[in-house]
C-alpha cells in the first residue's frame, strides 16, 4: 500500500521550558530527520509550547511490553525497602 514517496514515522519529544525533561507529544512523517524537526516545530509548537525538540525514527525505539502486570517490572514490585517510608524513626528525631 505504501506509495513510492511515503515517508518514515518519527516520534516527537518537546522540552516545554528550561528545567523540564523532553516529553513525548506525538508523531509525524518526514523524509529525513531535519525535515522531521521542521515539521515538529510547525505541528507541535505553534504557540510557544517548546524550547527544544527531539525527533527519533519510530522504528529505532526499543520498548518494554506494554502490559501493566508485565513480569519485566516485577523486580521493583517487592522491594519496599527502597522507599523512605519503610523505615520507622522515632518522631522526636529531627530532619529525617
Amino acid at each position: 500500500m505504501t506509495e513510492r514517496g511515503s515517508w518514515p514515522l518519527y516520534e516527537v519529544f518537546v522540552r516545554g521550558k528550561r528545567g523540564l525533561n523532553h516529553v513525548h507529544v506525538g508523531s509525524l512523517h518526514a523524509a529525513d530527520a531535519e525535515m522531521a524537526l521542521h515539521n515538529a516545530r510547525d505541528l507541535y509548537t505553534r504557540r510557544n509550547e517548546g524550547v527544544s525538540i527531539w525527533v527519533v525514527r519510530a522504528e529505532d525505539i526499543t520498548a518494554s511490553s506494554p502490559a501493566e502486570k508485565d513480569p519485566f517490572f516485577a523486580p521493583s514490585g517487592d522491594k519496599v525497602y527502597r522507599h523512605p517510608t519503610f523505615y520507622a524513626i522515632p518522631e522526636e528525631v529531627p530532619h529525617l
Binding site: 514517496g5 511515503s6 515517508w7
Partner: peptide, 16 residues
Amino acid sequence: GAWVREAARAYAEKQT
C-alpha cells in the same frame, strides 16, 4: 504533491 514527496524521499536516501 506526489512529486514533492518522492523528491524529498530520494534526496533523503541520497544523503544517507
